[in-house]
Nucleic acid binder design. Structure first.
Length: 295
DNA sequence: TCAGCTACCACGTTTGAACCGC
DNA sequence: AGCGGTTCAAACGTGGTAGCTG
């Protein structure tokens, strides 16, 4: 098994696969497997990455055509239903923790971003079907802007408050099990819980770089690697789920999101009712109930 | 003045090395 | 010697908060 962190130690867990897409390209290109190259992944790196793969001819003198990651949504609104664009017939993805995501989404999901990098919670956890058990695949995740606006918390809800900051360098998180066989990926749900988000534009760790107070959506890409060293990759599929849209923040704005995170995230158990912040929690519950006219 | 950001804190979870018994 | 189970400390991941910044 090849772990990207070992192969690209200088880049950390996430890798930039392509140039930033300037402006607001609002549509996926018609063809997913051609016409787009990733200069950051040069031949030696790719060769190293693939060196242990079965029947992979090591003839990578020229830059191989790399999989096309669809550009960011730009000003495109988030889709209202799970969306998939792919050239991998029969392959489908489902969001394992959809109910949890829906719960957060109904309140307005916020994700903390820090200079050092913060994990996403909930994390993207998917199960995949329809893969060729023998073929090898890579699982990738990136996060793209949903629209061209900056947001502001107005006490009760998020509202657009101006134009979005210029787009940051695109980075992609490669699942550490990649590349692995279809049988491996289908054996159990694939979790991206180690993905970290940062607001540091100079981040050296390879975390996904986001602007604070902007709306984003994760995308999951599946790349078949079986024919990597031929002229084309074996195909690619991209998936996104509307309930995973979130707003990046450096501190939680909506107290209900804080409450949900504390209740659902095991790492935040110390902040629950019987934790050290019991009194604070009580005060919050009382004020929350008052504000929602429960009293 | 104030919204947003950062560093630090205390607490809980996870991880992996060390140890032990079979 | 090798394997599997247990223990425990260090590392890591949390939200809260005070203070800083533009």
């Amino acid at each position: 098994m090849y772990h990207p962190r070992e192969l690209y130690p200088s880049l950390g867990a996430g890798y930039r696969l392509g140039p930033a897409q300037p402006g607001a390209d609002s549509s996926f290109p018609p063809g997913l497997s051609e016409g787009y190259r990733y200069p950051d992944l040069d031949t030696p790196k790719l060769d190293c990455f693939l060196s242990g793969m079965e029947a992979a001819p090591r003839t990578l003198a020229a830059h191989p055509p790399l999989p096309l990651l669809p550009p960011a949504m730009g000003t495109e609104p988030a889709p209202s239903a799970p969306e998939a664009l792919h050239s991998l017939p029969g392959v489908s993805l489902s969001l394992e923790n959809r109910e949890l995501w829906k719960e957060f989404s109904s309140v307005g999901t916020e994700m903390i971003i820090t200079k050092a990098g913060r994990r996403m919670f909930p994390a993207c956890r998917v199960s995949v079907t329809g893969l060729d058990p023998e073929a090898r695949y890579l699982f990738l995740l990136d996060v793209v802007p949903v629209d061209g606006a900056r947001y502001r918390w107005q006490g009760r809800r998020w509202e657009p408050s101006g134009k979005a900051e210029p787009r940051l360098p695109d980075r992609v998180y490669i699942h550490p099990d990649s590349p692995a066989t279809g049988a491996h990926w289908m054996r159990q749900p694939v979790s991206f819980h180690r993905v970290k988000l940062t607001n540091s534009t100079l981040d050296p760790h390879g975390h996904l770089i986001l602007h604070s107070m902007h709306k984003y959506q994760p995308r999951i890409h599946l790349v078949r690697a079986a024919q990597l060293c031929s002229q084309h990759w074996g195909g690619m599929a991209s998936f996104r789920f509307p309930e995973t849209t979130f707003i990046s923040v450096t501190a939680y704005q909506n107290p209900r999101i804080t409450q949900l995170k504390i209740a659902a995230n095991p790492f935040a158990k110390g902040f629950r009712e019987n934790g050290r912040n019991c009194k604070r929690w009580e005060l919050f519950i009382h004020s929350f109930m008052r504000s929602t006219n429960v009293y």
